[in-house]
């Protein structure tokens, strides 16, 4: 669905008030990756890492400085209009709806801009009205919508023409917990039911953890991670924690492959690597177990570690 080879983008920036010096800023430095149809993947990186620049090259907004991009078999900047019919894009911080008009009017205009056949338009609008619960504010001018309502409107606008591929730039930024959950559920649903490929950038690690199987991490213009979240945790996350509740207080358990970090009455915290089920059975064999819980390493912590690690290597 997406093929990117050695993609780079440089910007020339002039600095200084009188003697204008020419600086070349490398926003993206030779990144390569592939995305298959039906994937839902996250694109992560600190501010200014090159996330948005990459998305803009994938959607045909920016022309790459060098390298090759192919999205849905098309070169985005050369065949922008053809591509635009097949992809949807939503930029969380840019309004693409018509500010002074009722939400429904924006959808009507987009239907004509995208040349969506009337019956298909009716069907997909009916579906989004239900899934995203648009009815209470469908006739409200966009400027009067809350952020959560507006984002739901924007998502509908990006999906009305039935794209195969959806680009989302920080879709949940600024949303409250409920609104965030609604957006996430929606993305999972269109990905699962309609096979829409979704690529989203975010700062919200909750998005990544709930939604994505695969993660791309970019820092200072270079791709520093491409793989599953499980692998990421395995590699950078190190140990997990098994919390066990024993029938009665006991001295710290001594088990192979785990060490006790903390004891609080009958509850013990065991740090371990590798298989949780193996450890669980050894615990069960040596003490009477009432309950247990596995704590995954905090992804936020992991990401901080990757950013730091990649910088040190450079």
């Amino acid at each position: 669905m997406i093929e990117v080879d050695e993609l780079s983008k440089q910007f020339v920036v002039r600095r200084g008030r009188f003697r204008r010096e020419r600086h070349v800023v490398e926003a993206v430095r030779g990144i390569s990756f592939r995305v298959e149809r039906g994937e839902l993947l996250g694109y992560l990186g600190p501010n200014g890492a090159g996330k948005s620049t990459t998305i803009k090259m994938l959607t045909g907004i920016l022309v790459p400085s060098s390298g090759r991009v192919s999205v849905a078999g098309l070169d985005p900047s050369r065949r922008r209009i053809e591509l635009a019919r097949r992809i949807g894009a939503m930029f969380g911080q840019r309004v693409q709806l018509w500010w002074d008009l009722p939400l429904l009017d924006s959808f009507e205009l987009l239907r004509h801009i995208y040349k969506v056949p009337p019956d298909r338009y009716r069907a997909s609008l009916a579906r989004f009205r239900e899934v995203l619960e648009l009815d209470p504010f469908l006739h409200t001018p966009v400027r009067q919508l809350s952020l959560g309502q507006r984002i739901r409107g924007e998502l509908t606008a990006a999906m009305l023409h039935g794209p195969e591929l959806l680009f989302l730039d920080e879709p949940t930024i600024g949303l409250d917990v409920v609104a965030k959950q609604r957006v996430r559920d929606f993305l999972v649903e269109i990905n699962r039911d309609e096979g829409v490929t979704v690529l989203l950038t975010t700062h919200d690690l909750g998005d990544i953890e709930r939604l994505c199987n695969r993660l791309l991490v970019i820092d200072q213009g270079s791709l520093i991670w491409d793989g599953t979240i499980a692998d990421l945790k395995e590699r950078y996350g190190g140990e997990r924690t098994l919390v066990v509740d024993l029938e009665e207080p006991a001295p710290p358990l001594e088990l192979p492959g785990a060490r006790v970090e903390r004891v609080d009455g009958p509850r013990q915290w065991l740090r371990f690597r590798g298989s949780a089920s193996e450890l669980t059975s050894t615990v069960a064999a040596s003490a009477r177990l009432v309950d247990l819980q596995i704590m995954e390493p905090d992804i936020e912590e992991i990401v901080r570690r990757i950013y730091g690690g990649a910088r040190r290597e450079r």
Partner: peptide, 17 residues
């Protein structure tokens, strides 16, 4: 302000939009 981005992801000539 970069709002020209939005015109570029729509299947119409940007000048027309």
């Amino acid at each position: 302000d970069g709002t020209f981005d939005i015109l570029l992801v729509r299947p119409r000539s940007t000048l027309f939009q």
